[in-house]
Simulated assay, not measured.
Amino acid sequence: MVVPQGSLGTWDWKSIVGTMFPLLIVLSVIVLWAGITLESAEEMIEEIAILAVMVPTMVDMGGNLGAILSSRLSSRFHLGTTELDPTDRVLWANVAAILALAATIFTALAVGAAIIDAVVFGGVVGLADLLIISLVSGMSVAVIAIVFSFAATYGSYRMGIDPDDTTIPIVTNVVDVFGMVIFIGVSATVLGF
C-alpha cells in the first residue's frame, strides 16, 4: 500500500488545527439543521413526550456506531491491512457487526422507551409503534453511519490527512443531522402527524 504524502502519521499541532478548524466550522453549520428539525417537531414531541426521551439515545448511538467503524477502518489503514477492496471479508464483517449492534441497541431502546412510556406517561405509544420507529430510524442511521465512515476515512486517507483527526467529527455530526431528520420523519409517519 502506498501512503500519500502529507500529514498522515505526524503529530504537528499546527497541521491538525489547520485541518480541523475549517472542518469544525462547516460541521457546526451543518449540525444546526438538526436543531432546526427538532424545533420544527416541537408540537409532536410535546404531545408524545416519550419521543423526547428517545432523541438523545437515537442520535448518540448512531454517532457511536459510526465512530466505532471509523476507528476500525482508520486503524486498518495505519496498519496497511486494507485498501477498501469490496471482496475484503474483514470489511464486510465490520459492517455486519455494526448492523447487528445497531439492531440490538435500537430494539433495546424501543423496549426501554415502552416501559418508560407505560410507567411515566400512561402508555401513550405502544411497543409495536416504538419498535417500528426505533428500528427503522436506527437501522437507517446505522447505514448512513457506515457510508460516511467509509467515505470520511477513505477521503481523509487519500487527501493525506490522518483519518484519526477527521473521521469521528465528520461522522458524528452528519449522523446527528440525518439521525434527527430520519427520527422525526419516521415518528411523524408512524404516529400520524
Rank of each mutant, 00 (worst) to 15 (best):
I132D: 04
L135G: 13
A108F: 06
M139C: 07
A113N: 00
T87Q: 09
L84P: 10
I115G: 00
I98D: 05
L99V: 08
A113K: 00
L99G: 04
V143A: 03
F106H: 11
A97R: 11
A118R: 00
E83H: 14
T87V: 00
D88W: 14
L130S: 04
I98T: 13
A97T: 15
T104K: 01
A100D: 02
D88V: 15
A102Q: 09
S137G: 14
A142Y: 06
A96Q: 06
V125N: 05
V125K: 10
L84G: 13
D129V: 01
M139P: 07
V143S: 02
G138A: 04
V119S: 11
A110C: 07
A100L: 14
V124H: 11
A103Q: 03
S140H: 04
T107M: 09
I105Y: 08
A96V: 05
V136R: 13
A93L: 09
N94G: 06
V143G: 02
T104D: 01
V95C: 05
V119E: 13
S134M: 13
V119L: 11
L84D: 15
R89K: 13
W92A: 11
A97K: 12
D117M: 00
L99C: 11
N94L: 13
I132R: 13
I105R: 08
V95H: 08
